[in-house]
Structures are given as structure tokens and as C-alpha cells.
Simulated assay, not measured.
Amino acid sequence: MDWLERVAKLRQWSRGGVRAPHKPLLLLYALGRYQVDAEGELAYTAVEADLKGLLAEYGPVRGTTPAYPFHHLVSDGVWEVRTDRGAGSPGSGVRELRASGAAGRLVPELRAVLRQDPSLLGRMARVLLDLHFPPSLHQDLCDAVGLELELAETATLTAPGRRQRDRRMRDAVLTAYEYQCAFCGYDGMLGTVPVGLEAAHVRWWAFDGPDDVDNGLCLCSLHHKLFDRGVLGIGGTEGAGGSGRGHRVLVSPHFAGRSHAAREHVTTLAGRPLIGPRPGARPVAAPHRSWHTSQVFKGSTRPDRLVSGV
């Protein structure tokens, strides 16, 4: 059994690039807990708040509950659920999981393989991270779920059959934006080498975002992280001839910062025109901007319909 392939092919609700990261988040959480207690079970009532927080922080603004992945991950062959009545999940309802004393853990076959090959855990985690989240969030996610991984020492592991990243994108994007952050104008250099500047994917690579200039922004490290976390976004109009001159910085209404630094570096960006690419370079394409607005930017608390866990 190829556990990496199984993890890479988790069955998820999917339509038009919509993010549904509830199963990957639960599995990452379970791997983190496995490192602490390889045979321990995760009682739903004990982990419900943790999973709800992960979904709120790392999922799109869309109504869902941790009960969905807790029940539906069973169908992927990596997770099992038991209740006071024995093996099997009582369903995907919060009440049923709470009332039945439901508890879950990795299936026995996977636990046995992990005992024989502890390095598999890290490879599985990297596949989940690579397929569902941008690199800027990988360490944050590991910290959030308690995973001890040496991410900095190992290149991102691409899942079987997945395309490879184009390493030339960074240079192309930084050159197009003349080595300055599109949000704040930061243009730091150490000698002739840019420092603290990164090429951000607008539509995440993990969700078929191309390694093209019109899917990229040159951002400083801070604003790249905030862009990928949904604190910042891109609004406004396309401008004449699709020039992108009408693009403006969006700031999530959920962001709060009391310090002068938080106001200066984040809050006051709201409505500011993007520093666009140099003439002749393509600005962010409308479809990529729309994807980020709907799938990443924390701009609305409007309850969309629940996502099923399939």
C-alpha cells in the first residue's frame, strides 16, 4: 500500500478551485498527536475546539464544522472512529459525535508502518502541506498542530504525479515589480541582492496557480505572510485595457492591531493603490485575483452553505 499516494488523493469536495482543507488539517493534526502518543485516541469532544480553530485560521471563509472531517476521513482509509458502542462513526453531526463518545486515530495498518518507518510521517506531512497550502504557511501550520518537522532542511516533497514548480518565477516577478513590495514599496537590498522580498502566488500553486508573472506579486516577507493568511487582498478595478492600475489593497475587517506598527504596516494600507509592475509586464489577472478574494481573503463572515466531507 502506498500511503503517500493515499494521502495525496484524499477525497474532497471540489468545484472550480474551491478550497476544502478540512481533511488535510485533521490528518496533519492527527500526525502531530501521533508524535506525542502513537497509540492514543483523539476524543472528539477534546479536540473539537482545536480543529475548529484550525479551520477558521487556515480555511476559507465558509461555514463548516470539525465534525465533517472527523467522520468523513474514515472513507480514505487512513482514519478510524470508535464510539461507546464500538467501531464505526455515528455520522457527521456534532451532536452525534459528542453524545456517542466518539474518538478517532490513524488506522492500525498505518500506525504499524509508521512504527517501522518513522520517516514516513514527515513525508506524509510534506505531501499534505505541499498539496493544500503555500510554503509561507508550512511552518506556521506545523507549529499549530504540534508537528516536529525539519522543513528547512528538506526540499518540499511533491506528491506522485504532480507538476514541478518553475524556480524562475521568483526572478521574473521581482524583476517585473522592480524589486519593491507591491503593497508598501519596501525595496531592501544587501549589496546587489534583494533581501526580504518574495514572489507570492495570488492563486496558490497548490490549487493550480500557474508560475506566471500575472499570477504573482512581489511582496515583502511580512506582507507575503499576511496575503497568504487572508489579512490582505486585492480589490478595485482592472484599469484601462486591463492595466491593473485600478487595483487596491484590501485589509480584512477581522484584522486587529493596537500598536502603531500594526496600523502603519497593515491598517493604513486599506484602499492604497498597488504598486504595479513596470510597463509591458502583465498585472495580476482577474481570475487569479477573484480566486484569492473568494478562497483566501478573510473579507466576509457571510455563511455560505456547508461543505460536505465526501
Rank of each mutant, 00 (worst) to 15 (best):
S290A: 15
G188H: 13
G53I: 02
R282N: 14
D76Q: 10
G17V: 01
F297P: 01
A159R: 05
N215A: 07
P253S: 11
L121T: 11
S100P: 02
L73K: 04
L110F: 10
M1S: 13
R123T: 07
A159H: 01
G53Y: 11
V193H: 12
C142E: 12
L27C: 13
L141S: 06
A155M: 12
T301G: 14
I275K: 05
P273C: 06
Y186H: 12
P210T: 08
L42G: 03
E41K: 01
E178F: 01
D2T: 13
M189W: 04
G276S: 04
G91L: 07
T158R: 15
L190P: 02
G86H: 00
P303T: 04
S92Y: 14
S308K: 12
L110S: 01
A159V: 07
C218L: 01
D211G: 08
H201A: 08
R19N: 00
G244P: 01
V296C: 06
P279V: 06
G271D: 09
A30D: 10
A87F: 02
S290K: 14
V173A: 05
G239Y: 10
A8W: 13
V307E: 00
A240L: 14
G59Q: 11
P283M: 07
R278P: 05
P90I: 14
E80V: 06
G257A: 08
R258D: 15
N215Q: 04
L232Y: 03
N215M: 02
V249Y: 10
A144Q: 05
A20V: 06
V213G: 00
H265D: 14
A261H: 13
A172C: 07
L4D: 09
H247C: 08
S300Q: 10
Q180Y: 02
A43C: 10
R170M: 04
E57P: 06
Y68G: 11
D2H: 08
L222F: 06
V7M: 01
P69N: 07
F183V: 11
T64M: 11
A144C: 12
H71A: 15
V107C: 13
Q295H: 03
A56D: 15
V145H: 03
D214Y: 07
R203I: 05
C184L: 09
P210G: 05
F133D: 04
S100I: 02
P253M: 01
V307Q: 00
T301V: 14
V36M: 03
M169E: 04
F255L: 03
P60N: 00
E57C: 05
L128N: 09
C184Q: 01
R126N: 08
D166R: 07
G77W: 14
V61F: 14
K298A: 13
E80P: 00
G230D: 04
R248T: 15
W13P: 00
G53W: 08
T45R: 15
E109T: 09
A56Q: 15
H260A: 15
G146M: 05
L27S: 02
H72L: 11
H292W: 00
V61A: 15
A125L: 03
E96H: 11
L106Y: 09
L42D: 03
P283K: 10
L226S: 06
G309D: 08
G16A: 07
V18C: 00
G216Y: 01
G242Q: 10
P90K: 01
D187P: 00
L28V: 10
A199S: 07
A8E: 12
C181F: 06
D171L: 13
Y177I: 04
V47T: 09
A240F: 13
A102K: 04
I275Y: 04
P210S: 09
P60T: 13
